[in-house]
């Protein structure tokens, strides 16, 4: 499935929800699906600094595809990360670089990307792209 289609699927999933509580409950559920990240990987190097909640992102290139591991202290952020990694994990650097991320806005979670929230989520997407640039040169 392409990155675009993966995002479309998520947008379709969220269409089922009538109100924000269902959406948030779903996001909280998704946070539990996120593959756990070793303590050692939650290092200063992998830390994406946001004023409010810490987010860690680690990436490795395996057989030409990028494997991401990520975590956050805040459960809502963690749930959104889980969606983010469903889309971007195990992709080639070129796939990531030629993609856009618009699902967060379309599922009505735009506020979590605002710089005001300082939750590291928007920086995380940037960081995913940086990794893709770095790995595309290796």
């Amino acid at each position: 499935m392409t990155i675009e289609n993966a995002q479309k699927d998520i947008i379709d999933n969220f269409l089922f929800f009538d109100d924000w509580t269902q959406k948030y409950e779903y996001i909280i559920e998704l946070s539990k699906d996120l593959e756990s990240m070793n303590k050692e990987l939650k290092s200063e190097d992998n830390l994406i600094k946001g004023c409010q909640s810490k987010v860690w992102l680690h990436a490795e290139l395996v057989d030409g595809k990028i494997n991401f591991l990520a975590d956050s202290e805040a459960i809502i952020t963690k749930g959104i990360i889980s969606i983010l990694l469903n889309i971007f994990n195990n992709r080639t650097p070129n796939e990531i670089l030629s993609s856009n991320m618009d699902f967060i806005e379309k599922i009505g979670l735009k506020e979590h990307l605002s710089p005001n929230r300082a939750n590291g989520l928007s920086s995380m997407y940037k960081q995913i792209k940086f990794y893709a640039i770095a790995f595309s040169k290796t």
């Binding site: 509580t21 459960i75 809502i76």
Partner: peptide
Amino acid sequence: GIHSYDIGSILDK
């Protein structure tokens, strides 16, 4: 056991 960011985000709702 709950992060302040999560509390604030849901209170906003």
